[in-house]
Amino acid sequence: MGYQINQDKMNAILTELSKKYKIYGPRRYVGDGTFAHVDTIRYGEVTTLDDIEFKEKSNYSFKEVLLPISETLFYFTENEMKEADAPHSGAIVFLRSCDLHGLKRMDTIYLKNGAVDTYYKRLRDNTKFILMGCEDSFENCFCVSMGTNQSDDYDAYLKIDGQNVLIDSHWDLLDTALAEMPEIQVIPDAVSQNKTVVEIPEAIPQSVIDSPFWEDYANRCIACGRCNFVCPTCTCFTMQDIFYTDNGKAGERRRVWASCHVDGYTDMAGGHAFRDNKGQRMRFKVMHKINDYKKRFGTQMCIGCGRCDDVCPEYISFSNCINKLNTLVKEEN
């Protein structure tokens, strides 16, 4: 159902909802960027609509709400252990269409890929998603190429319209809160074209593994992992078992984001690493995003948010890599 409501009343509804849900949205963290006087837009708790950055793309995705960067899974001492409490028991997340498609990728990996991940599930189950529209494409976005520019499986769509807020609700709790408001038709803003267009190669031959194509990236990539950390579809983690220093008999197990570009990702006992070469790390990531995942789950993994291109300090473009790979595959066929 579509509604129109003024911002003050909507903020009052958010305040009411915040009693039951933690509300997360893209926030501007002033001066928090890599360089002096540079802001970061990343996910954090919000209390009013003013806290949410609607105008710019967030540098980091929403994924840390459901998959904390560092999450204690359980505490242990001697013969006992206790599962850690969940960071939240219910959440509302403001996000754009591309990220909402990213959520499906996370669900696939953590809920539909063999055993259900209980730590993910307990955060995911009671989380509602509010779509933020995109009137214009941002730099490096290629959502149209990936088919992620539109979404209809949101719990609500929200748009700031001057002093008013336009809402399309698919959520009964919100419908109840908005019952007195005038009903209007609200259609989410979505872009229909991006400046960046990618064409994903069909049927990439196995021989591409050994192609000199990746050597360029071997020289350019610095293995910082930023492309992975900003990506809403990168879901790898590693484990850390900690023994508290004052008491070696007690400790905790954490899971922490991992990156296939960062040193150590493929390290084995004895010191062997499968992909020392950074070009091979790029190959692994690219093939996973546009080939391997699809073979396994039927949809493309990459959602075209372009954050990897936004963030790479060495100006490596993932979208350009796909297009160059496409040309290469066509030539070889």
Partner: peptide
Amino acid sequence: GECVINCPTRAWTRST
């Protein structure tokens, strides 16, 4: 500020 510059997750940030 080298730690801040090289941190990929904003674990390190600058003081206000």
